[in-house]
Amino acid sequence: MNDDREAILSRVRGALAPLRERAALPTYDSEVAVMRGLIAGRDLVELFCERARRVGAVALSDPAALVARLRAESRFRGYCDPVLWPRLAPYFAGGDFQVEVTFDRTRVDDYGFGITRAAAAIAESGTIVLNDTTTSTRLAALAPWVHVAVVARDAIFSDISQAVAALGHDRNVVWCTGPSKTADVEGILIEGVHGPGTQIALVVDWESSGL
């Protein structure tokens, strides 16, 4: 409502007019909010995996281990990003898996897992970074019980400040730090509320540009 726009802005100006001076924007080094003691001297892949586990995610570096895990949990039906599939398909050989490369939203409950490409990861917090350009479908990373984000080793930021600085121009960026969770009922932690109950980061040697 246009009248409201003018009314609000004029009230804002009126409220601020009597201030003799306005609070200045502080100058500060982004470093203040970085856990440097944690990061310094660490291998980022190793640190990322450690921190991801700390927030309840699973960190793997071998596609074969991923397949073994899915098999052990009897999750045979799922989705895989079409760009990733040619490289991952050999690991899924054996005939017991049914993997689709388009996600049909009318059958969300059919997908036991969704494998997508992560744009990056953050070592400090164990976070997976997805965005609209890289991640083929938002729903496939969210609706299945297991989400697998494929992260390139060379795409791991050291810390949150660095990741914010690199947000870039993508319209939509989402950071996932562990599985979806709640503590609403009596403060008891439950994983897998609306999003994945199992959040897996598969860290691969492939170059991020190739993903």
Binding site: V55, T137, R138, I160, R171, K181
Partner: peptide, 30 residues
């Protein structure tokens, strides 16, 4: 960094979304 720790004692809240507009045309969802 402060919000997650202060609110729920987490380094970061699980989902942090940065929304810069409607979805990209190539993105099927959203």
């Amino acid at each position: 960094n402060l919000l997650g720790r202060s609110g729920t004692a987490q380094d970061l809240t699980v989902y942090t979304e940065f929304i810069g507009g409607p979805k990209l045309p190539a993105q099927p969802d959203g």
